[in-house]
Design a protein around this nucleic acid. Structure first.
Length: 486
RNA sequence: GGGUUGAUAGCUCAAUCGGUAGAGCAGUGCCCUUUUAAGGCAUUGGUUCUGGGUUCGAGUCCCAGUCAACCCA
């Protein structure tokens, strides 16, 4: 990469300017600079004649000979600054000649309106704050290359407005989710990321080792079993919003580390949790998207999908949805179901059990086709060992699976708190395999965990739904890519 | 893991049948006192992802590899 001569030449030009600036005793990589706020804040406080101090990256330089217009930019916005040769000291002009696009400047001056009505700062003083040694991407086309946009996210953020908007929304969504729960009396807690037994979900964990204790540890695949211990400990409304890790494939919807909200509410049940999540998502959507009709647009601005979040959201039984997609499905024998699924072109190589075949049909023919949110209830008990059985139909469990935008967004359970039944369900799930049980968790249950509702919410997927991002890597600052080989 | 497609200047993209690798922006020099994708004139810049092969000649064809995207598992 460093061998490209033309890049080296561009960098050499900047390095030379750096040397000239140093000879002029300019502190090129400056320090503290008092500003009146971010660029966006300062420009929003516009008032003709007001003297302001602001700092930012130079993203454009329109040189008119005796007058110059520069754009100063940061994540919050851009502001135009104006330098008139007659109005400033010669030294400032000498420094200005050495400013490249990409450099950081601090300026002080008075606000005025240009002929075309643009709010502009008439520069009196200017301070060099940082020189960019490398050229920035094209000011108009930005960075398009997907690989570059993720490996060098900072360039993507500088160059691409759409990307900035998505991450701005993500930041607001996370803040609003926290605020929503806190306003309802939930407290945020932190539980181990390094776990002796990776429990709370069925997934392959990342493995690591603690040297001092000489024990193998796993990065958590879910915080569930620790949060429940806190219910045992007397906490009644808790949540954790942080990263989970799963050592599995990377896809449009999967990143090895992803952000998950889990909340537990003592003496509630899955239905109460479904109402909570429904209200939470609507509250967030109204604030972030300005309404409950979420429009997903393609690059050229065309609406390609609308998600309607108007309440109440549909609630439907798992069995009915499968039956809707494949009439007569449950009248077939186990073998007939397998044949039928194969006949529909589904790959069943990873489906051993009958319920897995049905689940595969559910994922492909129901889940992926759902756009507006649906709470799927009465799921088969084999899918989730941590939820209470349905009293009226013990082959199903007291859960909801919230599906929207073609993917699972949030599960919620009436949490199983019978320690003997919990042990049995764990053992059934491991299916004879020597999967380790979290015995400490079972001990905690034996001390008594209050009945409770619990829910999870995939934050990355929520952000995808509310921003219309097509892939998870567009909503994670630094998604995982294979390192570039050398 | 399998299939398909892609990788050309700092960035965004061209290059017809295998025949001198080009443009815009950025950069450099000059002109210009309200521009905003500023403008005008001139100009620099290339290991065409890497390594082999075919050929008089390869960005283009073949083989292997790297990375990525999409689809499938």
């Amino acid at each position: 990469m460093e061998q490209h001569r033309s890049l080296q030449e561009l960098m050499a030009v900047r390095r030379e300017k750096l040397e000239v600036l140093r000879r002029m005793r300019v502190e090129v990589f400056g320090g503290r600079y008092e500003v009146d706020g971010s660029v966006g804040e300062v420009v929003n406080g516009f008032e003709v004649g007001r003297v302001v101090r602001v700092a930012g990256r130079v993203t454009a330089h329109r040189d008119m000979g005796k007058s110059h217009f520069l754009d100063l930019w940061d994540f919050s916005g851009r502001v135009q600054v104006y330098v008139n040769e007659k109005e400033v000291e010669r030294r400032l002009l000498e420094v200005l000649r050495l400013v490249d696009i990409g450099d950081f400047l601090g300026v002080c001056g008075e606000f005025f309106l240009t002929k075309t009505g643009e709010r502009t700062i008439r520069v009196k003083e200017m301070e060099f704050l940082t020189k960019a040694m490398r050229p920035l991407p094209d000011k108009w086309h930005g960075v398009v290359d997907v690989e570059k946009r993720t490996r060098q996210r900072y360039l993507d953020l500088i160059a691409n407005e759409r990307s900035r908007e998505i991450f701005e929304k993500r930041i607001r969504i996370v803040r609003l989710v926290r605020r929503f729960l806190e306003e309802r009396g939930f407290v945020e807690v932190e539980t181990p990321m390094l776990q002796i037994v990776a429990g709370g979900a069925a997934a392959t964990p990342f493995r690591t080792h603690h040297n001092a204790l000489d024990v193998d540890l796993y990065l958590r695949i879910a915080p569930e079993l620790y949060l429940k211990r806190l219910l045992v400990g007397g906490m009644t409304k808790i949540f954790e919003l942080n990263r989970n890790f799963r050592n599995e494939g990377i896809s449009r919807r999967h990143n090895p580390e992803f952000t998950m909200l889990e909340a537990y509410w003592a003496f509630a049940d899955f239905e109460k949790m479904s109402e909570l999540v429904e209200e939470m998502i609507c509250t967030v959507a109204e604030e972030v998207c300005g309404g409950l009709r979420i429009e997903h647009r393609s690059e050229d601005g065309e609406v390609k999908r609308v998600i309607n979040l108007e309440r109440p959201w549909r609630r439907a039984k798992y069995r009915d949805l499968v039956e809707e997609a494949v009439p007569g499905w449950f009248d077939l024998t186990v073998e007939e179901r397998r044949q039928k699924a194969l006949g529909m072109g589904l790959d069943l190589t990873h489906c051993q059990e009958d319920y897995e075949v049905t689940q595969h049909v559910f994922e492909k023919l129901v889940e992926e086709k759902i756009v507006d949110p649906v709470f799927v209830t009465h799921c088969p008990k084999e899918l989730i060992p941590l939820a209470k059985l349905n009293k009226a139909d013990p082959s199903t469990i007291e859960v909801y699976e919230l599906i929207a935008n073609g993917q699972e967004i949030s599960p919620g359970y009436s949490e199983l708190n019978d320690p003997d039944l919990q042990r049995k369900r764990f053992e059934e799930q491991s299916g004879g395999e020597k999967q380790k049980l979290d015995e400490d968790f079972l001990v905690a249950l034996e001390y008594g965990m209050p009945p409770a509702g619990g829910m999870g919410l995939g934050i990355d997927r929520l952000v995808m739904m509310l921003t219309g991002a097509e892939t998870i890597r567009d909503v994670i600052f630094f998604p995982h890519l294979r390192p570039e080989g050398q």
